[in-house]
């Protein structure tokens, strides 16, 4: 925990970044979640559409299922425009919604920071989350077609809204078995007790997975924004790896930093903590695939009594 420990420069930068991101997430909460849902309500008002003033108005499942079942999608509708904005922003900026606006994902991330690291599991140490999240996403897409819909029962957004609209005070309303399972996974197992606090985002969020597929394609192009890396500047201090909430950055035995566009949410926490500015966010090439440069040797530990 922070208390009683000397705070390093990197930790200070990390906290400052968390604070800045927090402001974004508050904006995201006001835009998409009840009781405010300003984006949903505003768009519905502009389109003269009757939509609920909560997260359901921008549901990701409904337009996808409508498309896949041949019903089609109305582009000029709240769900249609939301879906397009989500995918276009992911293509051009990376998963902008996840990294800046998703208060549900942020909630568990911030919550997990309240616990000491020794109590948390770093799932990414044991398993690569990417095939798991895409497996879940595939089931999310195919499930409704074969009568096995995963939403809204396992929807983290819906539960987060229930939680913030009364749940904090003990009034969750009526909960089904699947909502209880979701709460347990989202909040406890993959939230509080997961390093980074974004286990649910990593394994079970179809919205994030869809954005990452789009981002992985977009990041190959020079005119899109992405997390960039300059190996020459990197001192392999590992600060970015430790602070990445999605565990999208890893360090191999050879100390090389690796990055995955398949689960990076471009929250830029790594950019903020990097002491040598070797990680940046911007246009151009990513730089992750370039020739490796040998990392700087770690300083020898100071001997006791020296």
């Amino acid at each position: 925990m922070w208390k009683g420990k000397k705070v390093s420069k990197i930790q200070k930068k990390s906290r400052m970044s968390l604070l800045k991101r927090f402001i974004w997430y508050v904006v995201g909460f006001a835009l998409f979640f009840a009781p405010f849902a300003l984006f949903n309500r505003g768009l519905a008002f502009l389109l003269d559409e009757k939509r609920s003033g909560d997260i359901h108005a921008t549901c990701f499942r409904m337009p996808l299922v409508d498309m896949l079942t041949g019903k089609g999608i109305v582009i000029l509708s709240v769900t249609g425009i939301s879906l397009i904005l989500l995918l276009v922003s992911a293509f051009l900026l990376g998963p902008f919604f996840c990294g800046k606006l998703c208060a549900a994902g942020a909630f568990t991330e911030y919550l997990s920071r309240l616990l000491p690291d020794k109590w948390k599991v770093d799932w990414s140490k044991y398993v690569n989350p990417v095939p798991l999240r895409y497996g879940f996403f595939a089931a999310f897409i195919i499930g409704p077609i074969i009568g096995l819909s995963l939403s809204c029962s396992y929807c983290g957004y819906s539960f987060f809204e229930k939680f913030t609209n009364g749940g904090i005070w003990g009034d969750f309303g009526v909960l089904g078995s699947t909502a209880i399972i979701t709460a347990f996974l989202w909040l406890v197992v993959f939230g509080l007790f997961t390093k980074g606090g974004r286990g649910y985002c990593n394994f079970m969020c179809p919205v994030g997975a869809a954005q990452n597929i789009v981002h992985a394609v977009g990041a190959k192009l020079p005119f899109t924004m992405k997390i960039k890396y300059d190996r020459k500047k990197c001192v392999s201090c590992n600060a970015c790896v430790k602070d990445c909430p999605m565990r999208a950055l890893t360090q191999g035995e050879d100390k090389k930093i690796q990055h995955s566009n398949h689960n990076c949410i471009t929250c830029q926490q790594c950019v903020a903590v990097c002491p040598t500015k070797s990680i940046t966010y911007g246009f151009g090439k990513g730089g992750w695939q370039q020739e490796e440069v040998k990392p700087v040797q770690e300083p020898k530990p100071v001997e006791k009594g020296a």
Binding site: P131, A138, F140, S177, T178
Partner: peptide, 26 residues
């Protein structure tokens, strides 16, 4: 786990199955 192509495929199928089981439970 999940760094080679084969294990990635296995994990993908595994999670796909778990998620569909979730749909069945629902």
């Amino acid at each position: 786990l999940g760094t080679s192509k084969w294990t990635m495929v296995v994990l993908f199928i595994l999670m796909f199955g778990i998620a569909l089981s979730g749909g069945m439970y629902r």
